[in-house]
C-alpha cells in the first residue's frame, strides 16, 4: 500500500539513504501518478543525494502537474551555475528564509555584493541563529571589501 511506501521513504530519509528514498518515491508515483508528496520526496531526495541531474529530470517529469517546484528548480540551477535562470525562478516568490538564503548565494557568485548584503539584511528578521549564516555574511563583507 502507498502508506507502507511512505513509511519506507520516511525510514530511508532518517537513515540518510536518499537514493533509496527516491526509488521508493518512484514506486509511489507508479501506484499514484502525480502524488504531490511523492514528487516532492523524489526531487528533494535526489538533491540531498547530490544527484542534481536526476533532480532536474524528476522536476521535468512533473512539469505538467499543478505542483510548484520552482524553489527546487532554482536550487538545481544554482548548483549547475545557471545563475540568471535561478534568479528568474526566485523572482516574485514569497521571501521565505529559504528563498533569501539561496538568493544571497546566487548574488555572491555573481559578485553582486550589495544585493547579497541586502538579502542578508532581509534574512535578519527570521532570527536565524546559524554559524553558517554568520560565516557567509563575513565572506560577503570580505568580498565587498
Amino acid at each position: 500500500a502507498v502508506e507502507d511506501l511512505f513509511t519506507s521513504i520516511h525510514r530511508h530519509i532518517e537513515a540518510g539513504a536518499f537514493e533509496q528514498a527516491a526509488k521508493v518515491a518512484d514506486q509511489v508515483l507508479k501506484a499514484a501518478p502525480g502524488d504531490e508528496d511523492a514528487v516532492r520526496c523524489k526531487v528533494v531526495a535526489y538533491i540531498k543525494a547530490d544527484e542534481i541531474d536526476k533532480a532536474f529530470a524528476a522536476i521535468r517529469a512533473a512539469e505538467r502537474l499543478p505542483i510548484d517546484l520552482s524553489y527546487y528548480k532554482a536550487y538545481c540551477c544554482y548548483r549547475q551555475n545557471k545563475l540568471q535562470e535561478a534568479l528568474e525562478l526566485l523572482r516574485g516568490q514569497e521571501e521565505t528564509s529559504a528563498v533569501l538564503q539561496l538568493e544571497s548565494q546566487i548574488f555572491y557568485r555573481l559578485g553582486r555584493m550589495n544585493d547579497c548584503m541586502s538579502s542578508y539584511e532581509k534574512l535578519q528578521k527570521f532570527k536565524i541563529d546559524s554559524m553558517d549564516l554568520k560565516i557567509n555574511i563575513i565572506a560577503a563583507l570580505v568580498a565587498a571589501g
Binding site: 530519509i13 508528496d37 540531498k48 536550487y75 529559504a98 555572491y108 565572506a139
Partner: peptide, 21 residues
C-alpha cells in the same frame, strides 16, 4: 573570494509525511 557555505541545501526540505504513513 572566501568559500560560501551552502545554506540553501539545508533549506531544501522534504514534505511532512506524517499523514501519509
Amino acid at each position: 573570494n572566501p568559500i560560501v557555505l551552502d545554506m540553501a541545501y539545508n533549506a531544501v526540505e522534504f514534505p511532512s509525511l506524517e499523514n501519509r504513513m
